[in-house]
């Protein structure tokens, strides 16, 4: 099923992106071309093959429960557009 303009609008909304109508048309076209490109994989029979989330055959990569080094408050806030009172300052998020 090809990507529709509604799909693009929904994904954009979820990602907090906004596009003009022309840009949306362009994205519909580009996304469909990408899907067409990988559609060649549909020719393979994947019955009984579980979906792969990692390309490396790794499992159980653990760390031990030992304290490491944290940043200072100053460093933690260094990249914040706004900060104060030791906190990140952001636009108000509740009513």
């Amino acid at each position: 099923m090809p990507v529709s303009k509604v799909d693009v609008q929904k994904v954009a909304e979820l990602a907090r992106l906004s596009f003009s109508s022309d840009e949306e048309d362009l994205l519909v076209d580009e996304l469909n071309r990408m899907l067409d490109y990988v559609a060649v994989l549909d020719a393979l029979d994947t019955t009984g093959v579980s979906p792969t989330a990692h390309v490396l055959p790794l499992e159980n990569a653990f760390r031990s429960d030992v304290l490491g080094q944290s940043l200072t408050q100053e460093d933690a806030l260094a990249n914040a557009p706004l900060s104060g009172q030791g906190h990140f300052r952001v636009p108000r998020v509740i009513e």
């Binding site: 990569a61 653990f62 760390r63 031990s64 429960d65 030992v66 304290l67 490491g68 080094q69 944290s70 940043l71 200072t72 408050q73 933690a76 806030l77 990249n79 009172q85 030791g86 906190h87 990140f88």
Partner: peptide, 29 residues
């Protein structure tokens, strides 16, 4: 490896993983 202890000064038990900085790599405890 940051501490989960309650009541610390704000933003002092943090590291690139907690902050979601680019390139930070989480490893399961």
């Amino acid at each position: 490896g940051c501490s989960p202890a309650f009541g610390a000064e704000p933003n002092t038990h943090v590291c690139p993983v907690c902050l979601g900085l680019p390139g930070a790599l989480p490893v399961l405890n």
